[in-house]
Amino acid sequence: MTTLQYDGTYEGWLTAVFDIYAYKLEDVVFNKPGASSGLMFGSTHRVITDETKGERVWLGLQKRLSADGLKRLYKTFLADFEKPEETMWHFVRHVFNNSHNVEEDYSHPAVWEIRKTAKRVDREVHRMEAFVRFKLTRDHLYYAIIEPDCDVLSLISNHFESRFADQRWLIYDARRRYGIYYNLENVTTVAIDFHQGRATSNLIAEISDEREEFYQDLWRSYFKSVTIAARKNLRLQLQHMPKRYWKHLTEKMSKG
């Protein structure tokens, strides 16, 4: 068995697929930076990300998959569950082994898993678009901290760029320690190493606009006033807004 050591990017994974065919590798597993070193027995193939190789694989997939099929494959990569690359590889191999489109071939486990995983990512995208709560810093930067299950920043950037085109903002993924920043012209990816704890809380308090606490209180009051106690359904609320998101929601934060 061969461990494919790649850089953890989608382009790197596409390059790895190219190498599988180029070197006729069998029984492969994929390994990202920071993961365990691989198998105790077997060989390691180090993948050097190559734009040309990745593009050849991508063009081959474009000829065999619809635009939605390509998106589902990419979303599976962003799902961030255990070893999505293996599922993606089994799917891609099935695609290349057939002359017809296999997107609806649900008898194949990888096809069904890709479809199911893409829907899971879509749900996470909708939740992030609905649950992101911005706060204002003293230099008029709106920032939000999120911790999504899936790596969805690249999928939500267009939504926030079009919706908040007239203000600078930063959305930071605390789980993956990077963010997307909009400077009134375009969105860029930024790496920030925040550390959880009192120091971070103090820093946020220092950089926050003095009116921010007032606006948060106003929003909490509004949320409370529109809540009809008799119609409160905690089970339904948890279904649409899981508790793991609450700590970054203004209306769910207790003052102080």
Rank of each mutant, 00 (worst) to 15 (best):
P84D: 04
N158H: 12
S43H: 11
I228H: 10
E103R: 09
K24E: 13
I145S: 08
E51H: 10
Y106H: 11
T227V: 07
A205P: 00
A144F: 09
M241Y: 08
K135H: 10
N233W: 11
H195K: 15
W246M: 03
I204F: 15
M241E: 08
L218A: 06
L70H: 07
Y172F: 14
W246T: 02
Q196E: 12
Y142M: 09
F96V: 05
E251V: 13
T250P: 08
T15E: 07
R115W: 14
F77Q: 00
R93A: 14
T200P: 00
T188H: 02
I145N: 04
D80L: 00
V95Q: 02
E86C: 02
E26Y: 10
N97P: 01
V152M: 02
H45W: 12
T117Y: 02
T200I: 08
G42L: 11
F18D: 01
H195R: 14
Q167I: 07
G12N: 03
D193A: 09
N233Y: 15
R72E: 13
Q196T: 06
K255M: 05
T76L: 09
Y106S: 06
H94Y: 14
F77S: 02
R56V: 04
D139E: 11
S157D: 09
A130E: 15
L234D: 15
L61P: 08
N202S: 05
A110L: 09
W112I: 04
S107L: 12
L65N: 03
G42W: 13
E51I: 08
E82T: 09
V125M: 07
R120C: 05
I145P: 03
R72F: 06
D149W: 00
T9G: 07
N202L: 14
F30R: 04
Q62C: 13
S36R: 14
T44V: 15
A165G: 10
V190P: 10
W112G: 06
G42N: 11
M1V: 11
L39Y: 02
H100D: 08
F223I: 05
V111K: 02
L141H: 10
K116H: 14
E26D: 09
G179T: 02
V57Q: 06
R72V: 05
F41I: 10
G256M: 01
V95G: 02
A191F: 05
F131D: 01
L238W: 06
S36D: 12
P242G: 10
G34Y: 11
R244M: 06
V121Q: 05
L25H: 04
D173A: 07
V125C: 05
T188C: 05
E124V: 13
R120W: 12
S201W: 08
E82P: 03
Q196D: 11
I145G: 01
G69Y: 02
F18I: 04
E251Q: 13
V95N: 04
K255N: 07
K119N: 07
I192Q: 06
V125Y: 05
H195L: 08
E103K: 09
L25C: 08
E213C: 00
F164T: 01
P33S: 11
F131S: 00
C150I: 00
N31I: 06
N101T: 01
M253P: 00
E185A: 12
K32V: 07
F134G: 01
W13N: 00
N233D: 15
A174Q: 07
Y74D: 05
